Simulated assay, not measured.
Amino acid sequence: MKNFVVERWSPALGAEVSGLDLDAALRGSDAQIDEVVDALYGALIEHQVLFLRDQPLSPEMHAELGRRLGELAPRHHSYTTLDGNDDVAVLTWEPGNRPDASEWHTDMTFRPKPPFASILKAIELPPVGGDTLWASMYSVYDSLDTGFRSDLEGMEICHDPGQFRNGAYERGGNQGITDMLSEAGSAVWPIVSHHPVTGRPYINVSESNSRWIMGTGAAESQRIVNYLLESINRPDHQVRLRWQPNTIAIWDNRASQHYAVADYPKYRRTMHRVAVDTDRRHEASLAASATATA
């Protein structure tokens, strides 16, 4: 069952997986399921985002795929979940609504522990448009001059919930923003972070959530952030997916960002998402190493 084909889509990141029926794979024995998910995980670490077409997973199997990768993330502070299944977030944008994902971002970096991976399934799509792009933060780091990389070492940047302020204000005014920020929180990350599995350096700055470089003034902070955001916008670092119903994207949330294109103002778009908090295989590897050295 693990003999599926992985075809790279761009030099920076992204690959399509074909020859795999996820629903059938997830109904096998534990050993068979582990074999398939282990192979998918290896492809995910290599390519950062995987695309799978024609995967009519039920919500239960969608969440089960997430559990096979690790512990599922707590419920998002702003999104609704599927009736009867709190592990599946429902991301719906109605005609005339402004999507909140039409900015470069890594999911929930304002949390002390952002999710390791996300699994997104297309449910209802506009007749054209509504694509999603991903960018490799490895590739962005590698493209920077060595001197600038050295300047960034040791710098830290604060992440917060960004434009989720809009919905909070609509619901509760000033107090709504205060309550949302208190619930969602904020977190400070190294601008040059390192992937826990590969060890590779990547840029941990996003359009949606990065607010302030610690220890700097507003002007200096903004200049550095703007330069990095301009780098992320270069197509050299990106891959683009045109969704179809039952297309699934799985991405490593640690060294990639994504952007949901908001070019369908007259149409409805609905996606189901499962967020995975814990990288079970990496944590198992750390535990085995600790035992071996004890």
Rank of each mutant, 00 (worst) to 15 (best):
S10C: 08
A15K: 11
A15H: 08
E16L: 09
V17C: 06
V17W: 00
S18Q: 02
S18K: 09
S18W: 02
G19C: 02
D21P: 03
D21C: 08
L22D: 06
L22Q: 10
L22I: 06
L22W: 01
D23K: 14
D23P: 08
A24I: 02
L26F: 04
R27T: 06
R27Y: 06
G28D: 01
G28H: 01
G28I: 02
A31Q: 00
A31M: 07
A31L: 10
A31P: 02
Q32H: 04
Q32E: 00
I33C: 01
D34S: 13
D34L: 07
D34G: 12
D34R: 15
D34T: 12
D34E: 11
E35P: 05
E35M: 13
V36W: 02
V36H: 03
V36K: 04
V36T: 13
V36C: 02
V36Y: 02
V37W: 04
V37N: 06
D38P: 07
D38E: 13
D38H: 04
L40V: 00
L40A: 00
Y41Q: 09
Y41A: 06
G42A: 13
G42S: 11
A43G: 03
L44F: 03
L44H: 04
I45F: 00
I45D: 08
E46D: 01
E46M: 07
E46H: 03
H47Y: 01
H47E: 15
Q48Y: 05
L50S: 00
L50C: 06
L50N: 13
F51D: 00
F51W: 05
L52N: 02
R53S: 11
Q55Y: 05
P56W: 03
L57N: 10
S58Y: 13
E60P: 06
M61S: 12
M61H: 12
M61D: 04
H62P: 03
H62V: 08
A63L: 10
A63S: 01
E64L: 15
E64P: 14
E64G: 10
L65K: 13
L65W: 07
L65Q: 04
L65C: 13
G66R: 11
G66M: 00
G66H: 09
G66W: 01
L69Y: 09
L69A: 05
L69R: 08
L69E: 08
L69Q: 01
G70F: 05
G70Y: 03
E71L: 08
E71D: 10
A73C: 14
A73Q: 10
P74C: 02
P74R: 13
P74E: 06
R75D: 14
R75G: 07
R75H: 12
R75C: 05
H76R: 13
S78D: 14
S78R: 15
Y79C: 14
Y79I: 08
T80R: 15
T81I: 07
D83V: 09
G84V: 08
N85R: 12
N85V: 03
V88G: 00
V88A: 04
V88M: 06
A89M: 12
A89E: 15
V90L: 09
V90F: 02
L91M: 13
L91G: 14
T92S: 11
T92P: 03
T92I: 10
W93D: 14
E94D: 15
E94L: 12
E94G: 04
P95I: 12
P95A: 07
